[in-house]
C-alpha cells in the first residue's frame, strides 16, 4: 500500500531530525523502510544481490551525510532517495559520470515555506495514488522505464511491441498522472 499523507510529512520530519540532531532512531526507521526498496531497485536494474546490498548501505549513508541538501518543497523523501540511488546505479553499474545541473539550493540560514512543503508532499501523495491506480500493464511499463536499465526502444524489443505503441502507452500513463494531479 501507499504511504499516507501523514506518513510523507513524517519522513520529512525524520529528515529534519537527522539533519539537526543526528537522530539515530529517526534514521533507523528511515532505513528500515527505504533500504529494502533501494536494494530491490538495484537488483531490478541488473545488479547482483551482494552489490545491491553494498550500494543500498551507501545510499542510506549518503542520506545521513547529505540531509542538509534535502529540500522538502521540491521533493518527497522517496523522490530524493530515488535520485541518490539512481546516481549510484549510473556510477557503479554503468560506470559513468552523471553530469548534474547547477544546483539551486536554499542558503544555510533559510528554510522553505512550510505551506510549500505541505503542498508538495500532498502532490506527491496524489501522484503515488495515481500510479497505484493505473492498470497493471501501464504501471509495469513505467517501472520498466525507471528500474530496468533500458531505453524505450529496448523495452519494445523485449516485449515485441512496436516502439510507437510503447511510447504512446507511457505517454498515456503520464497524461493520466498529470490529470490526476490537477
Amino acid at each position: 500500500m501507499n504511504d499516507s499523507d501523514g506518513k510523507r510529512m513524517l519522513w520529512v520530519s525524520h529528515m529534519v531530525r537527522i539533519r539537526d540532531n543526528q537522530d539515530q532512531a529517526a534514521f533507523a526507521e528511515l532505513f528500515e523502510h527505504f533500504a529494502p526498496r533501494v536494494k530491490g531497485f538495484l537488483i531490478k536494474s541488473g545488479s547482483d544481490a551482494s552489490l545491491a546490498e553494498e550500494c543500498a548501505q551507501e545510499v542510506l549513508a549518503t542520506c545521513w551525510h547529505k540531509a542538509h541538501m534535502f529540500d522538502p518543497a521540491r521533493a518527497s523523501v522517496a523522490t530524493w532517495i530515488f535520485t541518490i540511488a539512481r546516481n549510484r546505479k549510473i556510477d557503479v553499474l554503468r560506470k559513468q559520470r552523471r553530469p548534474e545541473p547547477e544546483e539551486l539550493t536554499w542558503g544555510p540560514e533559510e528554510e522553505p515555506d512550510q505551506a510549500d512543503v505541505m503542498a508538495l508532499q500532498q502532490e506527491s501523495e496524489l501522484l503515488g495514488q495515481a500510479i497505484a491506480e493505473l492498470p497493471a500493464a501501464q504501471r509495469e511499463l513505467i517501472e520498466q522505464a525507471y528500474f530496468g536499465d533500458m531505453s524505450h526502444s529496448e523495452i519494445a524489443q523485449k516485449t515485441g511491441l512496436p516502439l510507437g505503441t510503447i511510447k504512446s502507452r507511457i505517454r498515456l500513463a503520464l497524461e493520466r498522472l498529470r490529470h490526476a494531479m490537477k
Binding site: F41, T79, F82, G128
Partner: peptide, 28 residues
C-alpha cells in the same frame, strides 16, 4: 519525472528482497 521514480520506489515492496544480516550496523 524524478517524482514518478520516487513514487514507484515508494510503492514497490519487494517480497523476495531482504537486507543482509547486520545491514543497519554496517550502514552506521
Amino acid at each position: 519525472y524524478d517524482a514518478v521514480g520516487g513514487e514507484v520506489l515508494a510503492l514497490d515492496v519487494p517480497d523476495d528482497v531482504a537486507l543482509a544480516p547486520g545491514s543497519f550496523a554496517a550502514t552506521m
